[in-house]
Structure formats: C-alpha cells, structure tokens
Design a binder for these strands. Structure first.
Length: 385
RNA sequence: UCCGGGGUAGCUCAACGGCAGAGCAUUCGACUGUUAAUCGAAGGGUUGUGGGUUCGAAUCCCACCCCCGGAG
C-alpha cells in the first residue's frame, strides 16, 4: 500500500492520508512538538484526545537525555511516552543550528551572537558539540542520527541536515547544501543497509534564500529515493520572502512524495503553504506561546495571538472568543498567566492545540468539499476556524 | 518606662562618609524543524521627620515619630 494517497485536490492544495506503521495521518495535518518525548504540559492521551494523529520527537534531545539506548531498552519511543500513534523524529540538524545561533528569530534579527556556541566543529563526517546537560563532548553525524532514530522507532525519520543560517553568503549556503545532500545519501545508504521496515525516511530541502540553490536541492532530494520531502532551512527575514522561498522549494515537485514543512506554524503561513501543496507541519509556537501566556484566536489584526498577560484583560469577563472550546474568562486566564500557574499553561496549551486541530480539520474538510479557496479566505479574514 | 534592633522603589532587602542598587511586582516588547512555565526593555526614590558635623551624609551626632523583640 502506498505511503501517501491524495484523496482530493483543489489547485495545488490536497487532502489525503499518510499510512504509517502506527496508523494513519490525515493531511493537511499539524504535528505538535514532543521534542523531549512529551508535549510540554500534556500527556499522550490528552494529545490524542485533541484529535492529533502524529507528534514530533527530537533525535538530538533524546540522544542527550535519556539516551536512545535506554528508550530502546524500554520498548521504544512509542511505548516510553505512551503514544501509540505515528511519530516523526527530527534528525538533530536544527539543534546544530540553534546551538550556534539561538532561535530562528534571533538569528534573522541578529539578536544573539554565537559567542556562546556549543558547536565545536561542523565537518564532513558530522558535528561535534558540547552537551547542554553536562558539557561533555559529543558527536552526531548522518549515521548517528539514523541509528538513534532507528532505536527510537519513529514512523518517519528525517535525514541529518545542516539548517543553513540566514546570515551567511551564497558560497557558504552552497557548501552547506552540498554537504547536506552528501549526508542525505549516507542516511539513505544506512537506511537500506540497517534500516527497519516500519520506518520511512524524509530528506530535507535546503538552499537558503537562493532560487537556483533551492531548485537544485529540490531535485537532489526528490531524486535520492527518499519516501518524503521536508522543506527546511531558515526561510528568510519576512513572510514575503518566506513565501517566495517556499515557492522555489515546491516548484517541480512530483505529486507523490508527501511534503512536510519544518517549523512553520502561523495561521496565515499554514494557509498559504497548504495552498501550494504542503501536507504536514510542525511548530513550537502553539505550545510555547501557550506556556508564555498567549492564546491563539481567529484575529488577523493581532496576528492570531491574544497575549493574556496584558493588563487590558484583567477585568474582562468574556471568553477568548465566540465559540472557543474553553469557556474560561480572559480575566481568569490573565490571572493564571500572570501568576505563572501551571494550570494556566495547561489550559492555554490545550486551547492552542485545539485551535490548530480545528484549523487543520477545517482545511481538510474544505478541500474535500472543493471549497478550499473560500475557506482560506474566511480563515484569513478571521471568520474561521 | 528602660534596653536592643530597625525605618532606603509597591514588597523584601543591599549599599555603612564619595554617582542610591538588586530580586520580586508593575508596564511594554519578543517567541515559526523547543536547551524556553522563557528571554529582553522600561518606569519607579526629598533614603521616617527636623536639625547638626563635613568639601561631601542613606551612612556620623542630637531630638522627635513609627515598627519589632526583650525586660519591668
């Protein structure tokens, strides 16, 4: 049976199903982050209860602690975290980037120098770095990443890549991309020699913000024999550039391999990306913003965000918005957020993930019904989900 | 009433003769393949009151007012 089946399409937007070892994932889908084998604040049954069919674990974090050997001995990542649905594991490539540059926003805005970099060396063989837990020197290369992901037993493994920074020249971007492609071939080779039958492999498109390099990377990934295609790298310094880069990164892609967009999660960005044929997304913001006191709301004027720590909500008895799953008042959520109550973080995490789940369900239904364009318009106008 | 300790930012406290600070709180900003229940910035002061010594006082001296503890 095919890994991915497109059921309906409207223009480039498509809805379908991914068939993985631990079950189906209906697309387009949002994939909550469970980097450290937990969706922060929730347990697996709660995440499943929100309707999610897949979560994203992180090779790098689980390699550092508690160690893939321990997880394997305990029956694998699914068993370890009590999640019996599909899991995609990120390869650790992005952590190399963030250890050197901080977050994507910090690097693009040059907010943080890399003077505190924990990267020791990025070489052909792989990356040497210091573990954040104990400062010990560690190494990860394509084979290490694949070994760890095989031990974890995720349904989808991602090839080890370098997330090319924004502030580098074209020459570095090319060398970085070429190295990522060589690493991909090593991942594919490892997979065919040692890989498990119940795990598929996605390659990651790089190429920075350069049209020719992106096109070259797309061709290299698509021609490598991987099961799916992920789009990575920093995508530019604003949404306009991100859309341009995304266009270059999807142009000429064959329909069949499923496409994952790494790290993108703003509502308008997801709507745009679905429109050009992306199938799955992962992003830290729904859960992170929740822990920082921000709720996702259908309000384009506020970038779909309501920062409940703001004084303006202190005495507001209204719910987050008409039709929100949670009936708690803004005043209560403000109070919880200001007090940094665990309860507040949990309520908002549940809310934000519910919001994203509804958005994706709405998107799937709209494409199925042939009403994608109208639905996209309604979402962008703040009338849905 | 006496003895001792103390009154400095909204709160808890530093500074003990030389530019009055911190933490928390407050307000604002940030967060897009999570080292993040995080990070950043700003506002906020007649140092209890009055006098004195000194080039210079939150700091030393005197008086008074409040608070805490002990004794009676």
């Amino acid at each position: 049976m095919a890994l991915f089946e497109v059921a309906h399409r409207v223009g480039s937007a498509r809805t379908g199903v991914l068939r993985l070892a631990h079950g189906e994932v209906h697309t387009p889908a949002f994939v909550p982050l469970a980097s450290n084998a937990s969706v922060r604040g929730l347990d697996a049954p709660e995440v499943a209860g929100l309707g999610y069919e897949m979560v994203l674990g992180n090779t790098f974090h689980l390699f550092i602690t508690p160690g893939h050997g321990r997880i394997a001995a305990l029956g694998g990542l699914h068993s370890f975290m009590g999640w019996d649905r599909p899991i995609i594991t990120d390869s650790g490539g992005f952590q190399v980037f963030s250890m050197g540059h901080g977050s994507v926003a910090e690097e693009v805005k040059r907010r943080r120098g890399n003077s505190q970099s924990r990267i020791l060396a990025i070489e052909e063989e792989g990356v040497s770095f210091r573990a954040y837990t104990d400062g010990s020197e560690r190494f990860m290369g394509p084979e290490t990443s694949m070994e760890v992901q095989a031990a974890l037993g995720s349904d989808i493994a991602l090839a080890f890549d370098e997330c090319t920074p924004f502030h580098v020249d074209r020459d570095y971007t090319r060398r970085s991309m070429d190295r990522t492609h060589r690493w991909l071939h090593r991942c594919v080779a490892w997979q065919s020699e040692h890989g498990r039958d119940d795990q598929v492999l996605y390659g990651i498109v790089q190429g920075g913000v350069d049209q020719a390099l992106r096109a070259e990377s797309v061709a290299a990934i698509a021609g490598s024999g991987v099961d799916g295609i992920a789009i990575g790298g920093t995508l530019g310094e604003n949404k306009e550039q991100m859309r341009q880069v995304l266009g270059w990164s999807t142009a000429g892609l064959p329909e069949q391999p499923p496409r994952h967009l790494l790290g993108i999660g703003d509502v308008d960005d997801i709507v745009h990306a679905v429109g050009i044929g992306i199938d799955t997304f992962d992003c830290a913001t729904p859960t992170r913003l929740a822990r920082h006191g921000t709720a996702l709301v259908p309000d384009p004027e506020r970038r779909w965000r309501m920062d409940l720590t703001k004084a303006e909500w202190r005495d507001d008895p209204r719910p987050l918005y008409e039709g929100a799953a949670s009936a708690h008042s803004r005043a209560y959520l403000h109070y919880l957020a200001r007090g940094r109550e665990l309860t507040g973080a949990r309520i908002l995490t549940l809310h934000n993930l519910d919001f994203m789940a509804r958005l994706m369900a709405g998107i799937r239904a709209a494409i199925r019904a042939g009403e994608w364009d109208a639905y996209a318009e309604r979402v962008l106008a703040g009338q849905a989900p």
